[in-house]
Amino acid sequence: MKVLLFIETDGEKVLGGSLELISAIKVLEAEGTALVVGNRALADTVAAFGIPVIFTDTAVGCDTLTEVLAETVKEQNPDIILLANTPLSKDIAPRIAGRMSLGCVSDVTGISKSDGKVIYTRPAYGGTILEHIEVEGTAVVTVRNGSFSKPEAASNAGITEKKVEISEEFIKTKIIDVVKEISESVNLEEAEVIVSGGRGMGNAENFKLVEELARALGGVVGATRPAIEDGWISRAHQVGQSGKIVAPKLYIACGISGATQHTSGMSGSNYIVAINKDEEAPIFEIANIAIVGNVTEVLPVMIEEMKKAKAE
């Protein structure tokens, strides 16, 4: 079985979700090759994880990346094409699948093999159920960040440089300017610890307790849609269906009831601690530790204990 990985970068670093795809190859017991576009130094970074790399310095953009990936798929003829489930890859994946008549599965959280067949697991109906999908023929698959562990360094597998000529007729869009937003500094997708607050925090002053706990743990602040709509924190921190899909090692849900719109965006977390005064809150159904109590009384105690632990 051959697997082609599209390794996405931001021009300066490799996105963590893309590196996790290397670990998926071990699960599949397959032969893997990675495609890196744009930055030669980042191709070296990927090759250091023991996977052969195809590198091209073609300008990065959705149209050009689609062409480069399509050409690489034709040459490599892989059984599976894996991409991280980023906004860019969610745009590229269906283009490749449609253009080359391939199967396409998005937002996959698990990959397994059964009787020689590959099974893709992904959430459906807002995360309320998991569906298992089998694709006949080659599949283009986007994988949710955090579904696999980060790979370990290995012997450098080498880089093959490739020149791809792209006709102007394929370039439908042109980036003329980039405006950096605050969201770029809020890296929820790659955070190992996230402390999120919801409507149950009560007001903006109480929400500062969420921010303080996140600082004490060296984590990132998350929030539900109601907290953002009330102006307690910027939309860049939103976790859920209409926000960011996250899978940290630790997720602390403060004053969050557990509506599907939110839990579908954080249910992949390794360990979930939930604090809510309602013992029937749906969030407790997916929590590893459930704390029933007033969040404004519980958080100060947690913050104090975290500070003591760090001081020791």
Rank of each mutant, 00 (worst) to 15 (best):
R199A: 06
A259W: 07
E67V: 12
S89H: 02
S114C: 05
V178T: 15
G17F: 09
K174D: 09
S267V: 07
A157L: 09
D177S: 15
A30P: 09
I171Y: 14
D177L: 14
P248K: 01
S185Y: 06
T138S: 14
L69I: 14
G16P: 11
S106I: 12
L21A: 09
I171E: 12
E190M: 01
G16T: 14
R199C: 01
A124I: 12
E20P: 11
E136T: 05
W232C: 09
P78T: 01
L35R: 09
I289G: 13
G255D: 08
A287I: 07
A247G: 15
L42E: 05
V221K: 00
G202I: 06
A47G: 02
V179L: 06
M302R: 00
P151D: 10
T138F: 07
I233V: 14
S167R: 13
N294W: 02
V186N: 00
E211V: 12
D115A: 15
A153P: 04
A287T: 08
Q76R: 12
E169A: 10
A253P: 00
K150W: 10
F284P: 03
G243K: 11
I171C: 13
E211M: 10
V73F: 05
A204L: 04
E192L: 13
P52S: 09
T121H: 11
E305F: 14
D57N: 15
I81G: 04
L19K: 11
A154P: 05
E211G: 10
R95P: 06
I92Y: 02
A214L: 06
D91W: 07
S89L: 05
T72L: 07
E12D: 14
G218H: 07
V36L: 09
E75A: 15
H237A: 15
S185H: 01
L188C: 09
T263A: 04
I166D: 10
E280L: 02
I289Q: 11
E189G: 00
G32W: 02
T58L: 12
P282Q: 04
F49C: 09
N39F: 12
S106P: 04
T142L: 01
V135T: 09
Q238G: 00
E285R: 15
L42M: 04
E165A: 02
A154L: 12
T45H: 02
M201W: 00
R199T: 05
G16S: 12
K308M: 13
G127M: 06
A59R: 15
Y251C: 07
